[in-house]
């Protein structure tokens, strides 16, 4: 430590959408603090690879490029003439080892903070080093857990979008749904000896405790699940019939001496929403007449079709309508077919 009375700020940066605003915020904060005492503003880029690695050259170049931009921004925000007692320090840290999780990044930042006598760490809200995987504790928590007397603050700048969070507060219906489903599944696979009830109880409890927080993307409603299950039971025979027809057609095509196929890739904007519904439709399309789902992005399906007849069936939208019925009820069946909507990507000639 050089001058013990200086106020030292640490800002880890990466190329994020809000990094510019974060820099503006810390410069504002530093300029205000500089009226009373010297301020050191440490802007660092935490390198994820080691400096000796082959891909490090690119990452380190990007890092120094970003830091150069930060220096320009700081000069710009300070009105071209930074206060005399505001000192800017930029550095790339952590290049001595591999960093994987937010915890590793927190360690490197805290080490640096300890060496430099940092008083406050300001985080860019979009700064997510080591990934924002739902199972990992985010950097903010990792830093807060550390046993240092450092203030941690998230820069109050606008986020572009809130990420969807996988881990949500677990509620009673969630626990009940996961517990019921796993107990039932265990018992159906067991031999119904008295001990199976005990081991099943134990297993279901473990599964519930571990997985209930990540089990649903929204709060389960037993009424909705019940309705969907009943409608799924109505859908199954229809799907089985379609599958049977599909297989007879494939068998005919495959065993026909002339192999009468006319494959073509088509696009379909399906009128279904939500992960479960899209997945059901994608799998149903794959199982039924001459159509195979190649890729799905949101609602846009890329489908490989084996014959012209298969394409015509696809755009008649029977399956799509049936899947809508399962997930949203009878009213939604009134939505027009892909061909009527014009969502068939101009492939309706088949």
């Amino acid at each position: 430590m050089t001058t013990s009375d200086a106020f030292r700020l640490l800002v880890p940066v990466a190329d994020s959408v809000s990094v510019r605003n974060t820099v503006a915020h810390v410069v504002d904060m530093a300029t205000n603090a500089a009226e009373d005492r010297p301020v050191e503003l440490h802007v660092v880029d935490v390198a994820s690879t080691r400096a000796v690695d082959p891909d490090a050259i690119e990452e380190l170049a990007a890092a120094s490029d970003l830091l150069a931009r930060v220096e320009a921004w700081v000069a710009e925000d300070a009105g071209g003439e930074p206060p005399a007692n505001l000192k800017l320090v930029t550095d790339v840290i952590g290049a001595a080892r591999y960093l994987f999780s937010p915890g590793d990044y927190a360690d490197v930042l805290l080490e640096y903070a300890d060496e430099q006598g940092i008083d406050r760490i300001v985080l860019d809200p979009e700064y997510n080093p080591g990934g924002a995987a739902p199972m990992l504790r985010p950097l903010t928590i990792e830093l807060a857990l550390a046993d240092y007397e450092i203030e941690i603050e998230e820069a109050p700048v606008a986020r572009r979008a809130q990420r969807t969070v996988l881990v949500r507060a677990a509620s009673l219906p969630k626990y009940l749904a996961v517990f019921g489903a796993s107990y039932l599944f265990y018992m159906l696979l067991s031999s119904w000896k008295p001990i199976d009830f005990g081991t099943g109880l134990l297993t279901a409890t473990l599964v519930t405790v571990l997985l209930a927080p990540v089990a649903f993307s929204e709060q389960p409603s037993f009424a909705r699940i019940g309705k969907q299950t009943v409608r799924m039971l109505v859908y199954t025979p229809y799907l089985l019939k379609e599958i049977a027809v599909a297989n007879l057609q494939i068998a005919y095509v495959v065993l026909h001496p002339a192999l009468p196929i006319d494959p073509e890739v088509v696009e379909l904007q399906a009128a279904v929403w939500g992960d479960a519904a899209v997945t059901t439709l994608a799998n149903s399309i794959t199982l039924t007449p001459g159509t195979l789902t190649v890729s799905v992005t949101d609602r846009a399906f890329t489908i490989h079709s084996l014959t012209a007849g298969a394409r015509a069936d696809l755009f008649d939208g029977g399956l799509e309508r049936a899947v809508r019925f399962v997930f949203y009820g009878r009213e939604s069946m009134a939505i027009a077919t892909p061909r009527e909507r014009g969502d068939d990507g101009g492939n309706s000639d088949g």
Binding site: I243, I250, V254, I261, T286, L292, H304
Partner: peptide, 19 residues
């Protein structure tokens, strides 16, 4: 064996094999 490319073969593998 008979179908010409990976996509058409996937048709046979997914539908007929499932049934």
């Amino acid at each position: 064996i008979r179908l010409p490319d990976v996509y058409t073969r996937a048709h046979a593998a997914s539908k007929s094999d499932t049934l």
